[in-house]
Each structure stands twice: as structure tokens, then as C-alpha cells.
């Protein structure tokens, strides 16, 4: 029993930390630029497939393969900024939502044309090694995912709150016009935000590949869970994304184990809706009224 429980918890943590990474990409963009990016899931898929290209098709060693894939994702962030964000920047929320959905459709089908519909199985740096954790058999890659996700989130936190550039980004997020008057290059901060979003989703994609296989349709299900995660955790806070992601991951695992495997996704969305109704700011978020 306890050994099974450990296994469920670790699986839940691994799944949850992926949701946290994706949720964080979502929050970063929304906070800094005010855009609700519904193409986040497709960006995860692109990240995953770029690592397929570098790691499987070009047969690079995993280190350079990952670095190259991440560099390409950073570039992808810049392109996204130029093609989607800039033209839609000052439009109403809903126009931007539809715009990002449309670009998501474009991305997903370009990926389908590029990589085909047959899934790939990317290698893990740890191969298929299994580790013994208190008697439970845990895949080494799952532990790697948890570690890297937390490392990245920690680095991002330091970057935003402990560096000068991070301070400027926060200034832009709080008041764009005031920031501009203070001489901050607002556009450059936007570009940087999209680059970070590209890197976070890219990292998430690279990490999930060996666990869940690379499949061009993988984006939407992951993004939907990440949405639920940030609503539960709080739409505008870094700790919120982490806690929300982990909670959703655990709810999925424990819900399937102890309640109903058929309705576990329904359960997650039910909790999300309850949060929206009772505590829309999430666990960590500020009150919404303050952000009209």
C-alpha cells in the first residue's frame, strides 16, 4: 500500500511539475504582456519535436541536442512576438484569445506536415533506468523531470526578483506607460518575455518527450491541465503555478486510483470551476477586482 502510494505521489509530482512549467509560461506572458496565450500547448509540442529533430533525426548527443532545441525555441518566441503579439497587442482580450487559438492551429498543422502523424519516442538522458525509492520502483526520468522543473522555476524566480532586468520586467508588467516614461525599453522586455515563454514551454516539451512520447497532438491536453493548474494556484503568481500544477498532477493520479479513472479529468475541471466560483484569485493570487 505505502509503496503503491509513493509511486502514485512521484508520478503525480512528475506530471504536476510539467503542468507547473507550462502554467508558468502562461503566467509570465499574461502578467508581462496581458496576452492569454492559447497556443501554449502547441509551443510545448514544438519544443518536444525540436528535440526529436536534434536528438533522433540529427543523432546529436543529448546535451547539444537539448541546447539546440532550446535555442530554436527562444527564436520561436521572438517570431511569435513579431507575428502574433505585435499586431494584436492593443486589441480586446477576446480578439487575442482567438488569435492565439488560430496561430495554435497553424503551428499544430505545420508540425503535422513537418514531422508526420506517427509518434516518436525520444531518449532520456537516463535511458530507461528505474530507481528504488522506499521500495517503490520509480523511473529515473520522472525524478529528473521533477528536479529540472524545480531548478528552472527557482532560476526564473531569482531572475525576476533578484536581477535588474527582472525588476524592469516587473515594472513593465505593472504599468507599461510609466515604465516607458522611466526609459525602460518596453518592447525589448516584451521580446524577452516571449523568449522566456519559448524556453519554458520548450523545456517542458523536452522533458515530457521520453515520458509521454512525441505526438503532434500532444499540446492541447497538456495546456488544458496547465490552465486548470494556474486557476487553482492563482493566475498571477509563481508559487501559485507550482502549487496548482502539483495539485492537478496529484489529483489526476490519486483521483484515478481512488475515485474513478473515467471521471478523473472531469474532477480536475470541477475543482477548477469551484475555485473560479469561490476563490477566483486562486490559492496565492491577488484579488481580481484590483486588476480590471
Amino acid at each position: 500500500m505505502s509503496q503503491q502510494f509513493i509511486q502514485l505521489i512521484v508520478s503525480g509530482l512528475a506530471v504536476g511539475s510539467v503542468y507547473a512549467l507550462v502554467g508558468l509560461a502562461f503566467i509570465m506572458v499574461n502578467e508581462a504582456t496581458g496576452v492569454v496565450n492559447f497556443a501554449t500547448g502547441q509551443m510545448v509540442a514544438i519544443g518536444c519535436f525540436l528535440s526529436v529533430t536534434t536528438g533522433i533525426q540529427m543523432e546529436l548527443p543529448l546535451g547539444p541536442a537539448y541546447a539546440l532545441a532550446l535555442a530554436a525555441m527562444a527564436l520561436f518566441g521572438i517570431v511569435f512576438y513579431g507575428v502574433v503579439f505585435r499586431p494584436l497587442q492593443d486589441r480586446p482580450v477576446v480578439t487575442v484569445i482567438i488569435g492565439t487559438v488560430m496561430i495554435g492551429i497553424v503551428i499544430q498543422n505545420s508540425a503535422l506536415m513537418t514531422w508526420g502523424s506517427v509518434p516518436f519516442r525520444p531518449r532520456s538522458p537516463f535511458g530507461r533506468q528505474v530507481v528504488d525509492v522506499f521500495g517503490a520502483a520509480i523511473s529515473a526520468h520522472a525524478l529528473f523531470v521533477i528536479a529540472i522543473a524545480f531548478l528552472l522555476i527557482g532560476l526564473l524566480y531569482l531572475f525576476i526578483y533578484r536581477t535588474a532586468i527582472g525588476a524592469r520586467m516587473r515594472a513593465v508588467a505593472q504599468d507599461r506607460d510609466a515604465a516607458r516614461l522611466m526609459g525602460i525599453g518596453v518592447d525589448r522586455m516584451f521580446v524577452l518575455t516571449w523568449v522566456i515563454a519559448g524556453l519554458l514551454t520548450g523545456a517542458a516539451g523536452i522533458l515530457v518527450g521520453p515520458m509521454w512520447f512525441a505526438d503532434v497532438n500532444m499540446g492541447d491536453p497538456i495546456a488544458l491541465k496547465a490552465f486548470a493548474a494556474i486557476i487553482i494556484g492563482g493566475f498571477s503568481s509563481v508559487p501559485g503555478a507550482i502549487v496548482g500544477g502539483i495539485l492537478v498532477g496529484l489529483a489526476e493520479m490519486l483521483g484515478a486510483a481512488y475515485i474513478s479513472s473515467a471521471y478523473k479529468d472531469g474532477l480536475v475541471f470541477l475543482v477548477m470551476i469551484l475555485f473560479l466560483l469561490v476563490r477566483p484569485q486562486g490559492i496565492f493570487g491577488e484579488r481580481i477586482g484590483e486588476r480590471a
Binding site: 484569445i97 490552465f227 486557476i231 470551476i273 477566483p280
Partner: peptide
């Protein structure tokens, strides 16, 4: 009672 993209996400749910 929700507004903006909160309502969008609730209805999505």
C-alpha cells in the same frame, strides 16, 4: 460574477 479571461476559462471548463 467572473470577468474577462476568468470567465473565458470558467466557460471553457
Amino acid at each position: 460574477r467572473l470577468k474577462g479571461h476568468y470567465l473565458a476559462l470558467a466557460t471553457l471548463g
